[in-house]
Design a protein around this nucleic acid. Structure first.
Lengths: 233, 233
DNA sequence: CAGTGGTCTAGACCACCAA
DNA sequence: TGGTGGTCTAGACCACTGT
């Protein structure tokens, strides 16, 4: 375990367990250096991590403070975990509609950076949160990277399988969002009315080496779609 | 100018001007150290900044590569500039509907962390992009921080005034998003139909010292609402 | 002015990738 | 195996905050 990662985890856990609130002061740099027995740079790196993540903010000449918003039930769009939190912290179930190997659409081929004649896994499923429809998801997986998939894997967490089962390292994601009206087909799947609002998200997931492996098109039930983003300017 | 900031700017500019594409390789660390005459840590810090911002990705043992998505017309939800880009890169105009000093709603008081009897500036305006309605915006400004506002300021960039005119430093933002249906009033303002989709965003802006100064509720025209987010996992 | 965080250095050592 | 990025250190010096 990296030292700065350990320190960041420890601090975050401390904040959580002691239920510290927005503006509460954390120990000064020197104390953290002593407490963890590391250099200033290492503590600083841990704090930068937490700052980017939206857990703390630092004020020069003053101190290190807790940053915590008050709202419950919102899903973070980013912050290391990102959508993984949906999988873990909430009760999510899935219903697989389709799973097969096929040739990609031109759109999928473009986004996955593969040829039109190369094989991809195609997955279509509905996901439920607390028994309510959360989203309709269509995913294309680059078969030269994700070499095998089956129904059992898809019903669990695909990303857990990718990292643990296949030993791949997920690096970064590009997400494109817009708001639109549900088509009749989408409305049927989600149990809503045609013309109701939807949040539509296209995501391209890349390995740490930059290779795209997952192109997903997700239509969210607007009733369940509450997100938050914490930005540092 | 900070060295690492200068290096980051220079690299980003280089990528832009030479129209480098996703996956293109940048000079190795050692070369950047020599080229800018700085230590390894400083280059690393610049690169971390660009990585977080979604401009590059680094692969250990391999090199530094350009990260660039292909889609135009999407507005970044984050990345230093965030919504500022809307103000600068696109042609935005505003129509002010209301501007006055009043007592905050309980909701605004809570989010701005002020008492119910303290004054706030209230601003309601419609914003247009290329002549099309972009959003309906209601903002509450903590008057003890934003001591003065007038119509002229509001018609230009409020944030430019806050940073340049008042000399304040904007630190971070919490944003809460969800999708819903337009009310009749909102639809009128945006030139849409009641029941049409909307993207609704509540934002709380804080100074670098953690003090909240702006609570805004923004209803976006769904036709204009195309956003992207770049996450590093 | 004392205390606190921010920047930067020079260098050691480690982990990973590609040839 | 050589090259590349990642972690960590000890310490100098700077910039900001609050008293």
């Amino acid at each position: 375990m990296l030292k700065y990662q350990h320190i960041a985890d420890a601090l975050e856990k401390y904040i959580e367990e002691h239920e510290l609130q927005q503006g509460d002061k954390l120990p000064v740099l020197q104390d953290l250096m002593n407490q963890f027995g590391v250099s200033k740079s290492t503590v600083t790196k841990a704090l930068e991590l937490l700052e980017t993540k939206g857990v703390i903010f630092q004020v020069r000449g003053s101190g290190i403070f807790v940053r915590r918003h008050k709202r419950k039930g919102y899903i973070s769009l980013l912050s290391t975990k990102g959508f993984k939190k949906i999988l873990e912290d909430f009760q999510i179930t899935s219903k697989v509609i389709e799973l097969d190997i096929r040739k990609p659409t031109t759109e999928a081929a473009l986004n996955l950076n593969v040829g039109l004649d190369e094989d991809v896994y195609y997955v279509k499923r509905i996901r439920y949160i607390h028994g309510q429809s959360l989203c309709l998801e269509e995913s294309y997986f680059n078969k030269s990277v994700i070499t095998y998939l089956n129904n059992e894997i898809i019903n669990e967490s695909i990303f857990h399988y990718i990292t643990e089962g296949l030993g791949l390292n997920v690096g970064f994601t590009d997400m494109f969002l817009h708001v639109d009206k549900l088509t009749e087909e989408e409305a049927d799947y989600l149990g809503l009315e045609k013309g109701d609002p939807k949040l539509y998200v296209e995501s391209i997931f890349h390995l740490t080496n930059g290779q795209p492996f997952d192109f997903s098109k997700v239509t969210y039930n607007y009733v369940q779609s509450q997100f938050f983003v914490q930005a540092v300017l």
